[in-house]
Design a protein around this nucleic acid. Structure first.
Length: 660
DNA sequence: GCCGTTTTCGGCCCGACTGTTTTCAGTCG
């Protein structure tokens, strides 16, 4: 059965080929839309077709429904076959070159039968291209340059690397006097993998900022530049786009360049229906051009079209506009909602710190509990614990909790799911723990059915509390293993197992779509860091972003609940499986609020703009993210941007390198 | 192809840049 991605790929190819054939561009857009909608569906396309929900999805009409039926039956559809027969496959590659669109590529093919990169390069060098209309010396030079860029183009990079690079660029611009600087595009939306970068700035005079931007050391080539921005190619082949807005239109600019594209288009179409004209310059009346707002704040754009503010993580054009309209936008989970971290390692296996150090760091974050979950024996490379070492480790953790007294320490394990689906410890050992994460680490090449059975069997043991990094992907390095996530989630729901949204920035697994599927299916999600050192405990925003992109509210996330609820979650499942329940030990813990350094609030905005941040200020930002309680700081952050929490994240992220 | 405060036809976001023109098409984000 073709997956959602397979079906979406058919529509993408149809859109590309139709554009190359010179088909109606609105029809092309409609196919692109459908591809996107299907790739983000929260359920299997086949099931949605059966229940009739597919036909009710915005962007999906009768034409799409009949094509989807055909694709599910045959794996392809006649429209696509016809288009493929009419055009050589290489043309799809040619339009990926910057500066060449479907119209030009069609002309190249019609006139000279150019259909591959090699043929195009030859035509450019031999002077053939110069005979075509609108092909001068510069343009031919650009074509050759873009062929070079295409050949050595690096793929997308993990979000954390993009944020680090974008943060460095932003720093230079802040130095150059920008009033505001932030990331737009997919970085602002927290997409796990990033292609090009978008940097946005506010300033009274754009020219010096643009000058500074194109002179930054990472810039290799200036692709285009104007009075209000520039596009450059960076040394690593990545493109970075930079826009400057007057402060009075900062919100309008943010909205225009944060995407996703389809979301922005949908907002503008909506505005059009309301007789309004929305652009990065603000909102105007369509009738007489009268300016309604310049858009100082992003909220004003939404207000103008009669909607509540939609946070960037939700701007994926996956139903957020309809939800906003109907007043059912989710109240998304935040860092302050998290009461504990349920996946971390110590030196006992492959971590870099002692359990005591991890626990102290967690206490500083204001947590109520942590689970220490070192690796099991079969993961030799990670110095996994055999049952004898685990028993000693558990005793040590129990003592640590008694001695430390400030937070609950759950003695747990990240136990390996072996190839046959059995777990790496025996039942008695696992039943004696407080929290069990089960993960697949080895033999990743199994086929889909076998891998799915392997995971399902582990969940059905009744001994597992949470499935760790469920798809096994490592961003930029390893694709997810073949797994029927639908089936796994169904079994997780039935067996009372939570699934992890890992905050490891190179995993972010589950991702937003996975989290949304979990939500739809009623499977609780755990946001955990998988920390291997104390600083890793602070990486919560990566898993949080997946949860938020997946529409999760506090109630969908298990570790927003107190430790008793966590213990009960486990106990209830063990009882159902007829397993002995550990008597929950009651250790009186006194929660200590994270220290807030007193500081005069005057000049705070200026201090926040400074980099590096003073140590005390960084601490205060972190405290604010933990507790949400610092009105003075919140007000100052509010002056930096619409969402104080987002601002605090941004500042701390810019401040810290990828390993912070 | 999709959609509807323009509702079964006739529209479909918007502005800016490039390279080539001398008023604009194509492309991009």
């Amino acid at each position: 059965m073709p997956s959602n991605q397979d079906v979406a790929a058919v529509f993408t190819e149809m859109a590309e080929l139709l554009a190359l054939r010179g088909g109606d561009r609105h029809r092309v857009r409609a196919f692109q839309n459908v591809a996107r909608v299907i790739s983000y569906l929260p359920d299997g396309v086949e099931r949605m077709l059966r229940y009739g929900t597919l036909a009710r999805t915005p962007g999906v009409g009768d034409g799409t429904v009949s094509r989807v039926k055909e694709i599910l039956r045959r794996g392809t559809c006649t429209d696509l076959e016809r288009l493929r027969a009419a055009l050589p496959p290489g043309l799809r590659e040619l339009v990926k070159l910057k500066g060449l669109g479907p119209t030009t590529v069609r002309l190249l093919y019609k006139r000279y039968r150019i259909s591959t990169l090699e043929e195009l390069e030859h035509a450019a060098r031999s002077g053939l291209l110069a005979r075509l209309p609108r092909f001068g010396v510069d343009r031919i030079h650009n074509v050759l340059r873009e062929i070079e860029v295409y050949k050595r183009r690096r793929g997308k990079v993990p979000l954390i690397e993009a944020r680090t690079l974008a943060g460095r660029l932003a720093e230079e611009l802040r130095d150059a006097g920008a009033l505001e600087v932030t990331f737009g595009g997919s970085v602002r939306r927290w997409k796990p993998m990033i292609g090009d970068l978008d940097i946005l700035a506010a300033g009274d005079d754009a020219r010096p900022l643009v000058e500074r931007f194109v002179a930054i050391g990472d810039v290799e080539t200036v692709l285009s530049r104007g009075d209000e921005g520039a596009s450059v190619r960076l040394a690593d082949g990545r493109q970075a786009d930079f826009w400057v807005f007057p402060l009075e239109s900062w919100g309008a600019g943010l909205h225009a360049f944060s995407g996703c594209k389809e979301h922005v288009v949908a907002i503008r179409r909506r505005a059009g229906r309301m007789g309004l004209h929305v652009s990065e310059h603000g909102v105007a009346s369509r009738a007489d051009g009268r300016r309604i707002t310049t858009g100082r704040y992003e909220e004003e754009i939404f207000t103008a079209v009669g909607l509540p503010f939609i946070t960037p993580e939700l701007r994926q054009f996956t139903g957020e506009i309809e939800a906003a309209e109907e007043g059912r936008l989710p109240v998304l989970v935040t860092a302050e909602d998290l009461k504990g971290d349920l996946h971390m390692h110590t030196r006992e296996s492959d971590g870099q710190a002692s359990a005591a150090e991890m626990v102290r760091a967690a206490a500083e974050l204001g947590y109520e509990y942590v689970a220490i979950t070192d690796h099991s024996a079969s993961l030799g490379v990670a110095n996994g614990l055999d049952e004898r070492r685990l028993a000693a480790h558990v005793r040590a953790l129990r003592r640590l909790e008694q001695d430390f007294g400030r937070l609950h320490v759950l003695a747990g394990s990240e136990v390996d799911i072996l190839p046959d689906g059995s777990l790496d410890y025996d039942r008695e050992t696992l039943a004696g723990l407080d929290w069990v994460v089960a993960s697949v680490h080895e033999n990743l090449g199994m086929d889909r059915d076998a891998m799915t059975e392997r995971v399902v069997r582990a969940l059905e043991s009744g001994l597992v509390d949470c499935l760790g990094h469920p798809t096994g992907r490592v961003l930029g390095r390893r694709e997810p293993y073949a797994l029927d996530l639908d089936r796994v989630l169904e079994v997780a729901r039935r067996t009372g197992v939570a699934v992890e949204a890992s905050c490891d920035p190179y995993r972010m697994d589950l991702d937003g779509l996975g989290c949304r599927q979990a939500r739809e299916m009623g499977v609780p999600v755990v946001i955990s860091t998988d920390a291997h050192s104390p600083v890793h405990l602070r990486r919560r925003e990566y898993g949080l972003s997946s949860a938020r992109r997946g529409w999760l509210e506090k109630r969908h996330v298990l570790n927003t609940q107190g430790v008793e609820a966590i213990r009960e979650h486990r106990a209830a499942r063990l009882r159902r499986h007829g397993l002995a329940v550990q008597v929950a030990r009651t250790v009186k813990v006194e929660r200590t609020a994270p220290a807030v350094r007193p500081a005069g609030d005057e000049g705070l905005v200026a201090a926040l703009r400074k980099s590096p941040l003073e140590g005390a200020l960084a601490g205060r930002l972190r405290s604010f993210l933990e507790t949400g309680d610092d009105p003075g700081l919140e007000a100052a952050l509010g002056e930096l941007g619409a969402n104080p929490v987002q601002q605090a994240f941004n500042l701390l992220m810019t401040e810290r390198g990828p390993d912070a």
